[in-house]
Design a protein around this nucleic acid. Structure first.
Lengths: 229, 229
DNA sequence: GTCTATAACCGGATAGAC
DNA sequence: GTCTATCCGGTTATAGAC
């Protein structure tokens, strides 16, 4: 009985979610009313709110879905590419590929996510699991690379790269060029610069700067998910 | 007659704006209804909307006001400090001072500003005047400095610094430490790093990297306010 | 106690009279 | 320029069904 109940519940939830995402993609976020979502999903408005706290909550699905897709899409790449630059570049391009279908309402998503109070915010406690997973994929890109990287830097790089990737996504949101060409170009350019910088950072000349930068980073972002920051 | 009309209009507009900002500061943005603003300002809701397109539009005032204050607050500093690091550090600290009163609703402000569609967006055409002025103050900090800086970098630095300053403000929004200590610390640390990096960039070893970085920057941000980007 | 529905609330925004 | 009346849509209160 529990099973049946749960299954039906799950189905209703999934139906509402799928309907919502479809409508968002068809008409945009603002233009899609909760009444329309409920209607199209064959439930009442109140019922939709039983499953999802708010309209924005429905966007959470975006996060989870695209991240899962990104991991899947990156599998081959991470199995094959060797150099740090290739791995990072590949990762970034598959990321863009993965989120592309959602570009039209990415603005709204980001707008929501930008509010420090929002559970959707990338730095919020609620986002910690997704954030940690996303950071992990950069760590994986790093671990599997054959490039020589100073060990102190290597320890901090995954989080730095996650931050970098957020910056690229931010650029992407504003990128209206055909095929998102400008973002692609930005990725190629910045990955190449990052790779150069990383390999230069081993140079004795840059050692003091590297040490200072890493110390500052550790001070500013003490833990992956600081509750009291 | 026109004068009287205009004057009265200006007064009403100013009254609504002042009332709104006061209420926002007292109770927060979300908690302040347009009805409350209209009431407190002694006008009707419809009238408030005659002067301001939307509730969020009222926040525009924030931009203009704080920038004017920032320029004023930076005057002495720019007249006295000599080194690039001192000038930049001072500029950043006066910036934080200036925006501090608005910290409690900065999240909402940023949230609004983050939407690519929003006229409040820092990169929007509507924001160009403020953005250009803000960039100009960094150019001034640079021009008056006695530090030696490669000329190709010097040409691009104001825009880079504007970008950097946006990043700091973003950090500040999320900074709930007493006295905004973490942001202050971030400013000191990053300014020192930036200064080191700028002076290191003259080193032949880093020349190719600098050239590539600047070329990428110019490609990605062709003009101050690209209409078609 | 898990799910679903209806009716209402609330506040941002607009229409249209004066 | 100013108002009143109204719309609209996110959200909630609450009653009842399974």
């Amino acid at each position: 009985m529990d099973v049946t109940k749960t299954r039906k519940s799950e189905e209703t939830r999934a139906r509402i979610l799928d309907t919502a995402l479809t409508l968002f993609l068809e008409r945009g976020f603002q233009e899609t009313t909760m009444r329309a979502i409920a209607d199209a999903a064959g439930v009442s408005v109140g019922n939709a709110y039983y499953y999802f706290e708010s309209k924005e909550q429905l966007i959470q699905a975006f996060y989870a879905r695209t991240h899962v897709e990104h991991v899947a899409a990156s599998h081959d790449l991470l199995a094959n590419a060797k150099s740090f630059a290739d791995r990072l570049r590949g990762l970034m391009h598959t990321k863009i590929d993965t989120i592309e279908p959602y570009h039209q309402f990415a603005g709204v998503l980001f707008r929501t996510a930008a509010d420090p109070q929002s559970p959707l915010h990338p730095l919020s406690a609620e986002s910690a699991p997704v954030r940690d997973e996303a950071t992990a994929i950069f760590a994986e890109a790093l671990d599997g690379s054959t490039s020589r990287i100073p060990s102190d830097l290597r320890a901090e790089l995954p989080r730095l790269l996650w931050l970098y990737h957020m910056g690229v996504v931010l650029f992407w949101i504003h990128d209206s060029s055909p095929g998102r060409r400008r973002t692609r170009r930005l990725v190629d350019g910045t990955v190449s610069l990052i790779a150069s910088l990383v390999s230069l950072s081993a140079n004795p000349l840059l050692r003091p700067l590297r040490k200072r930068a890493l110390a500052l980073l550790r001070e500013m972002i003490p833990e992956a998910a600081p509750a009291s920051a």
